[in-house]
Amino acid sequence: MTKLVDLPPREHLLPGNRACAGCALGIGLRSILKALEGKTIMTVPASCLTVLGGMYPISSVTVPWLNVAFPGAAAAGAGLAAGLRATGRAGELTVLAMAGDGGTADIGLQGLSGAAERNDDFIYVCYDNEGYMNTGIQRSGTTPYGAVTTTSPAGEKRPMQLRKDMVKIMAAHGIPYAATAAIAYPLDLVRKVRKAVAIDGPTYIHILSPCWTGWGFSEALSVKISKLAVQTGMWILYEVEDGATRPTVKITQRKPVEEYLKAQSRFSKLTKADVERIQQFVDNRCKEFGM
């Protein structure tokens, strides 16, 4: 399959949900649920996704969905998988735990590490909007270098540090499959989800999910910003399968990172030297992937 028109027509994410207009998360979730063809039980911790999922008694998805506490996505995924095995339903259903970057890289990291180490059989998707966007754009462990948030406001004291590399952390657990994805590349995302479904054991997909309210761009541009992240090398699309790393979308003509940074107000306080530093990080990283 190579075309979007070939994706299953059935929608599992309903229109009129509570996501912000132009929210990238909804775009990503739509692709994921199509890839799973609805044969899934989801679990979701506190996050924007909780809001998107709907307020009682209205749900925005046509798949079962278990809300859990903020640190609990991975343990809930493990519990669902164990419960389905114990009740003889494991073969027919895929468990999907889906959390934001805070619920993954920060408060949920311990539980996720435990599930990965135990080889629990479920797909973990982190949608990464690079901050605590649902609670008002606070800094998280994946907030990029120099980005302004409400807890790292513009000024000299704001942390200038690199984000956690979650895929590397997960791959280091020796899980069978870990990958990045971007909402602007739905076919790449769908292929990765389908791959994860077929694999026994824990699989991890980390999706960059641009947040226009938190990042400071127009709501019409979520897909463009996602694309720009990939085209500048700020976000590399790759997978780590049984320890072997390979890029899944190769960018031959990389755009300068400045194009990506300038498009977002959260980076407006970067100095020229900061931008050069980021370009250097990105160049070094792209080299690792042969780009």
């Binding site: 278990l66 493990a78 669902l80 114990a86 539980g111 435990g114 599930a115």
Partner: peptide
């Protein structure tokens, strides 16, 4: 039974909550 050797008590109870949510006795 499925024995899930979790990394914390927080996860222990989370596993139980989730497994009970698909009908398992926990």
């Amino acid at each position: 039974a499925e024995m899930v050797r979790v990394e914390s008590e927080h996860s222990a109870l989370t596993v139980c909550i989730a497994a009970a949510s698909v009908g398992a006795r926990v």
